[in-house]
Design a protein around this nucleic acid. Structure first.
Lengths: 334, 334
DNA sequence: CTGAAAGCGCTTACAG
DNA sequence: CTGAAAGCGCTTACAG
């Protein structure tokens, strides 16, 4: 239904080469001719086919961002930064949501190759495992440059945040406010979540703590309530709880309050991600800030460098960003 | 660098037509031939160019979802549902983040047309105004079917949630728990936010309330604190606060607590969106649930119907979903 | 079951 | 400054 370059050429009484020239305005064109063409384009409501152009030029200036869920706010913060960066460079950035199934990841990877996109950024450590499992991966990795936020597989570039030491810092912070009996709440399994847990465990050992443990659980309200009530000793035995995500900390605080515990006097709580609501909540939640924006920025910059061919980077883990504790009322009253 | 259909044909000793046939497996191909081709594809690491195919076939089976920000969790919930729906139908759904500038919207629309995408869904009422302002809009709307969540412009399909009556219901709920002096906190301006406000105002009038008002403000902690402290009378004059978003309610509760107000005894608070943290927070936040998932589902279904040409729908506002109050501890203690 | 050929809508040397 | 022509990588009637 849309007009093509041929229609415009006919309407304006010129060749398609000339039309192409005025569309791309990179070669000099006689002003009168340009006018005619422009008018023809207007009146026929012309819009050039980027796919025909892409076929010719071999690049569509596209990059892909892949997340497992649009609902993961932490990952979307990272995606936001990447999008802003590449939009400015006139790239078309397209987001894919793949869930956690290797099949749908494979499907997306296939599409991304077939579309000859210029690069891809995966957000989240879960992709490390997923990529290792998927059949499409090798082909994919050899086809286009890939950056992973919080993950790495052979042939890709990884940008990590040091959540291991972030969690150690959380333990140290607890000790600094005299909490020596620590519980760790672990949500969904993932590489990142495992790193965090070992940071916690090692931190506790280094500090010579005698009472520390962790629980793996769902982070919804009902489950957590049941967990805390069925094991009444949990609430009485520990004086500090570290959660692997802020929303888990939010839930924990809710239930602790129901059980008449004072935060932080009876039990101090630390979350992770420095999400918006961690500062909006009451009490404000002390959190391990794992630098979403900074990580996104690094991902973007690395991919950018690769694409512009500025340098031949070795494929490897390129950056490890430090995370940082942000202290709020859930551990220290202001 | 990638192998093309010609390379495969040569390698397998067949014509490109045959290669195409085995790739698309829609015509019968001799089994032995198929094997040869398949092997050639394997060994050359072939992946068909979807863009060459698209040029020929005129449709890439793509739809676009456009949001103003990846960081808007409410909008991403809607996007998530739409993505799931179309992924199952083997569409490639690509997300665009445009911000709130007409320019970047125009750019995205241009790209979407140039890519000959099959349809587009805008999420958020802000797009109504943006689309009305943009130069590209007319062309865009006449090019492909468009659905807007919470907005409508001539030539598109609109799926609305009745937030006006949602806010009236919030007022009624306040009255039912004996709150008759209500304050409304309004965040960023948008059509949706205006609807909500008028729902509040009209609700108050209908209930014959004498003390009600609204404040337009930023929703961060500092601003709200200053607002409440500089106008100490706010906190003393009202016994109920309705906020146009949950995160605003969260902030309000935080500051009210700092000022030693009890929630809900002294002041009851209602938010909007039924976001995850509204149930995770303590107290749980009573909220106007504007049915993100349902709205997303309707958007997807409508676009789906248009694309499959099942029927010629009149272009108009197609659905208005009812919103619903979810009562939690911020208004009624359980 | 298979191949030769036309065509999808562009871009870009190459001539003039 | 402008046009004729080749080619980008596919699909699909049309013959055989």
């Amino acid at each position: 239904m849309g007009a093509t370059i041929n229609d415009i050429a006919r309407e304006a009484g010129v060749s398609i080469a000339t039309v192409s020239r005025v569309v791309n305005s990179n070669t000099a064109v006689n002003e009168a001719t340009r006018q005619k063409v422009q008018q023809a384009m207007e009146s026929l409501n012309y819009s050039p086919s980027i796919i025909a152009r892409g076929l010719k030029l071999k690049s569509m200036k596209n990059i892909a961002i892949i997340v497992s869920s649009f609902k993961n706010t932490h990952h979307m913060r990272i995606a936001h930064v990447i999008n802003s960066h590449f939009s400015k460079l006139d790239y078309d950035v397209v987001m894919y949501e793949t869930g956690l199934s290797p099949e749908s990841l494979s499907k997306s990877m296939k599409r991304i190759i077939e579309k000859k996109m210029d690069g891809a950024i995966f957000i989240g450590s879960s992709f490390q495992i997923l990529l290792e499992k998927s059949k499409e991966t090798k082909k994919f990795i050899s086809s286009i440059p890939i950056v992973i936020a919080n993950g790495w597989v052979e042939g890709t570039y990884g940008i990590f945040v040091d959540e291991y030491n972030g969690m150690k810092a959380a333990v140290n912070h607890m000790v600094s406010i005299n909490r020596r009996k620590l519980l760790y709440l672990k949500g969904t399994d993932s590489i990142s979540s495992d790193y965090k847990l070992s940071g916690f465990m090692d931190g506790c050992k280094e500090q010579g703590l005698e009472t520390f443990s962790y629980i793996r659980s769902e982070k919804d309200v009902e489950t957590t309530r049941k967990l805390f009530i069925d094991n009444k000793n949990i609430v009485d035995m520990y004086d500090g709880i570290i959660c692997d995500e802020d929303n888990y900390a939010l839930v924990a605080i809710k239930i602790l309050r129901e059980l008449d515990k004072r935060i932080p006097e009876d039990i101090a709580v630390i979350g992770c991600n420095n999400s918006e609501f961690s500062s909006f909540a009451s009490p404000g939640i002390t959190t391990v800030d794992n630098k979403a924006e900074k990580q996104g920025m690094y991902c973007a910059i690395i991919l950018d460098e690769i694409l512009s061919g500025d340098e031949k980077l070795e494929k490897k883990i390129l950056q490890t960003l430090e995370s940082e504790i942000i202290v709020r009322d859930s551990t220290v009253l202001s």
